[in-house]
């Protein structure tokens, strides 16, 4: 399937370890994909074949599952993921302007990564922080009552680390 592999032999071994750890679970595919993404930051197409073999699925089925879910990334992402809530509660608190300002500040649109590889910007539909709208999430942390300035501070802080 692949003429050359973009993943190193060590990385391929890591994928095999994830497969071995998860394959006996009932309904193993999602937990397995989560484990791979937690490890690599994204799910490479190169995983499809070994996963399909281990779980007795077709490659197309694995591809179908990976691409069905917004959470799984099929391409490498930045060091940090910034998700901006687009849902109604945040809209009621001015998130549409916030989205625009964030895109301008970072110089990217949704599903893109900044040139320095630091931040990937994604839309999200509700973070469950609706009493403190508008909300964003940087990696695993939620932030409420956001303004473009506050988001810039959070991003700058993350970049500095």
């Amino acid at each position: 399937m692949f003429v050359t592999s973009a993943l190193s032999p060590q990385e391929l071994t890591r994928i095999d370890v994830h497969i071995a750890t998860h394959k006996a679970m009932p309904g193993a595919l999602l937990p397995l994909l989560h484990a791979i993404q937690d490890d690599f930051g994204w799910v490479s197409e190169e995983c499809y074949l070994p996963i399909s073999k281990a779980l007795a699925l077709s490659v197309a089925e694995v591809h179908g599952v990976v691409t069905f879910y917004h959470h799984f990334h099929t391409h490498p992402v930045g060091k940090h993921i910034l998700q901006v809530c687009r849902a109604e509660s945040c809209q009621a608190m001015g998130s549409q302007k916030l989205e625009k300002d964030i895109k301008t500040a970072l110089g990217i649109d949704y599903h893109e990564t900044t040139k320095d590889g630091a931040v990937t910007l994604l839309p999200v539909y509700c973070l469950g922080n609706c009493a403190c709208s508008p909300a964003v999430m940087l990696d695993d942390e939620v932030y409420g009552r956001m303004t473009a300035e506050k988001v810039a501070d959070i991003v700058a802080e993350a970049r500095a680390v």
């Binding site: 309904g27 937990p31 917004h70």
Partner: peptide, 25 residues
């Protein structure tokens, strides 16, 4: 079990599909 960002999986039958490791249809 962690979901994966599909709103439709709040619908009970697509949730079950997802738990079984399939597309949440």
């Amino acid at each position: 079990r962690r979901a994966a960002g599909a709103y439709i999986c709040g619908e009970e039958t697509s949730l079950l599909e997802s738990l079984e490791g399939k597309r949440g249809q």
